[in-house]
């Protein structure tokens, strides 16, 4: 299964890189869709159907939004020239990547393998059905143990809607 995950993640990286370098904005968007929908398959393989449902639905809606906006805009991207500064950036990126891979390598030896938990809270969550009464453990965690997180997410969405209304409706009136 890990090999399959690696192949899918490779697809995601290729899609992300293509979407950065595509000339047409619409094809860049469709390459972004590759990233999102591959993530859905990753979640399903890792046995997280809750996340998979949320990801596939939100991905579809945001894709519709972005396609609708791109179809009404210029579509062509402005060309950029490679300067000396680009080489400095590439060097910094390589250095940061090497440091990250090194620290990841040292950290992974101290961690448990994926799926086996030893922390105290994880054990509490798994016995959560008795404490919250909800058969779906994820919902039990979201609305009971981690209620503040859910409230924060809802507040973020509320703020986003208010912001969009503030920006767009003012301009529409002028």
């Amino acid at each position: 299964m890990e090999i399959l995950l690696c192949v899918i993640i490779l697809f995601m990286i290729i899609g992300a890189l293509y979407s950065l370098h595509a000339k047409d904005l619409l094809s860049a968007l469709i390459a972004c869709g590759i990233v999102g929908y591959s993530l859905v398959i990753c979640f399903l393989l890792l046995k997280a159907p809750d996340l998979a449902i949320v990801q596939i639905v939100v991905e579809t809606i945001t894709l519709i939004f972005m396609v609708a906006i791109v179809l009404n805009s210029t579509r062509e991207e402005v060309k950029k020239q490679i300067t000396k500064r680009a080489f400095v950036n590439i060097g910094i990126t390589l250095a940061v990547t090497i440091v990250l891979v090194f620290s990841f390598n040292t950290a992974i030896e101290a961690l448990n393998p994926l799926g086996s938990h030893t922390t105290r809270m994880a054990t509490e969550y798994i016995q959560g059905a008795d404490k919250t009464g909800s058969a779906n453990l994820v919902t039990g965690v979201l609305f009971d143990f981690r209620g503040y997180d859910t409230l924060g997410e809802a507040t973020i969405l509320f703020t986003a809607a208010i912001g969009v209304l503030t920006v767009l409706r003012l301009k529409g009136r002028q």
């Binding site: 809750d50 779906n136 919902t139």
Partner: peptide, 10 residues
């Protein structure tokens, strides 16, 4: 949402 995968957001 409290029985099967999914919930308020999805």
């Amino acid at each position: 949402g409290h029985l099967t995968p999914g919930g308020g957001f999805a």
